[in-house]
Amino acid sequence: MDLKAQNISKRFYRKAGESNYFYAVRETDLELPSGALSVLMGRSGSGKTTLLSMLSGLLSPDTGTVTADGRDLYSMDDRKLSAFRAARISVMPQGRAVLDTLSAWENVFLNARIAGVRDESLVPRALELMERFGIPDLKEALPKELSGGELRRVMLCRSLLLSPEVLMCDEPTGDLDDQNTALVLDSLRDYAHQGHTVLLVTHEADAVSYADRLLQMDAGRISTPDPV
């Protein structure tokens, strides 16, 4: 599925009720093709996470449109957009986006549960993903018992479980050692090469060597739209 953003921008007010605002993303055009790993890099505060949120249907832009296979995401009502996202777009956010009351195994199935998918074949896939990312023994562990790196891998398993057409990861290797970083980047590239659309937002310099497309973001604009 191709994802296309046209002239999108987002501004935030520094303090509610004041006219003092800044642009996190300025009139940006972007196309994410399927079958390629797009890597978005940039300094902190350059607008990477805001751009990812808008591309994934989580944050409505102030201007412009985001289309997925020709459908304008933000013209859909919340129920339809949520169902669309649950079925086709998977997001792995930067922060701790897990339910503390569920075990790691249950958190891996959270997307599927919300999407209403109760396919038995997901169990071996979940086991295979946890095995691949080195957390097969943590099925029963609660999020509070996991390290930052383990938690990120649980979230990555969750994002991949339903084999979404679009996968967007925000700093997926943030808490990982070199070995696991390589494993994750390798997996994301493989997943993209299977025909999926993958956007990776990262600081990780090593990610450059895995990128099919490298995007550089600076002060709310993509400065090198398609250098690779």
């Binding site: 989580l58 649950a86 959270l110 919300i114």
Partner: peptide, 16 residues
């Protein structure tokens, strides 16, 4: 708030 954000990220609608 963060927990609810996680549910929204996973595709839960506002109504749900």
């Amino acid at each position: 708030k963060r927990e609810f954000a996680a549910l929204r990220v996973c595709g839960m609608s506002r109504a749900r």
